Amino acid sequence: MSRMIHVFERTTHEAHEWVNDLAGRTGWTNEREVLRLLRTVLTKIRDHLPVDEMAQFSAQLPMLVRGMFFEGWQPKLTPVQERHAADFIAAVDAQVGDVIDYQGSKDIKAVFNVINAHISRGEVEDVRACLPQELRDLWPVP
């Protein structure tokens, strides 16, 4: 039983590391809003990926973050055919644009940089390769 509890503690710690890293990069102080930004960007990325790549990418996410990544996923609606960075940004804006500190693409890039810092470079490159060119241009190279 204590081994199972350790797994929960570890994944909670890992999720906190991601949230704290993103809070530091954005300057946001409200952890709920930071988590909402992280979740929103991750699900928008998810919706652009083929199933195999989605599974490989999600395997490197902390378990709690992985749960949010898959929450609400509708396989028949993915991958989306959205081609433009402006559409991606607008979709994120629709979810977190009410946050006072939100700075659009700057904060989205902060999420990409958190991913770059916590996911293997090879996997980040694989995910980026699945995205339209405008989204690859938005996502800093790891």
Score class of each variant (00 low, 15 high):
Ser2Pro: 09
Met4Asn: 15
Met4Gln: 12
Val7Cys: 12
Phe8Arg: 04
Glu9Asp: 11
Glu9Pro: 11
Ala15Ile: 05
Trp18Ala: 02
Asn20Met: 13
Ala23Glu: 05
Gly24Leu: 00
Trp28Tyr: 13
Trp28Lys: 01
Trp28Ser: 01
Thr29Tyr: 00
Asn30Asp: 00
Glu33Asn: 06
Leu35Asn: 01
Leu37Arg: 05
Leu37Thr: 04
Leu38Val: 05
Arg39Met: 04
Thr40Glu: 12
Thr40Phe: 01
Val41Gly: 01
Leu42Asn: 03
Asp47Glu: 10
Pro50Glu: 13
Pro50Phe: 07
Pro50Val: 07
Val51Ala: 15
Glu53Tyr: 09
Ala55Thr: 15
Phe57Ile: 03
Phe57Glu: 06
Ser58Arg: 04
Ala59Ser: 06
Gln60Cys: 05
Leu61Pro: 01
Pro62Glu: 01
Met63Ile: 04
Leu64Lys: 12
Arg66Asp: 10
Met68Ser: 05
Phe70Asp: 11
Phe70Tyr: 06
Phe70Ala: 04
Glu71Pro: 03
Pro75Leu: 00
Pro79Met: 02
Val80His: 03
Gln81Arg: 08
Glu82Lys: 15
Arg83Phe: 06
His84Tyr: 06
Ala86Gln: 14
Ala86Thr: 09
Phe88Val: 00
Phe88Tyr: 11
Phe88Thr: 13
Ile89Asp: 06
Ile89Thr: 06
Ala94Glu: 15
Ala94Cys: 12
Gln95Thr: 02
Asp98Thr: 14
Asp98Cys: 13
Val99Phe: 09
Gln103Asp: 13
Lys106Asn: 12
Lys106Arg: 15
Asp107Cys: 14
Ile108Val: 02
Ile108His: 03
Ile108Gly: 00
Ala110Asp: 11
Ala110Pro: 12
Ala110Thr: 15
Val111Arg: 00
Ile115His: 13
Ile119Trp: 08
Arg121Lys: 11
Arg121His: 14
Glu123Lys: 02
Glu125Tyr: 15
Val127Asp: 04
Arg128Cys: 10
Ala129Phe: 10
Ala129His: 13
Cys130Lys: 13
Cys130His: 12
Pro132Tyr: 02
Pro132Phe: 05
Gln133Phe: 02
Leu135Lys: 04
Arg136Thr: 10
Trp139Leu: 05
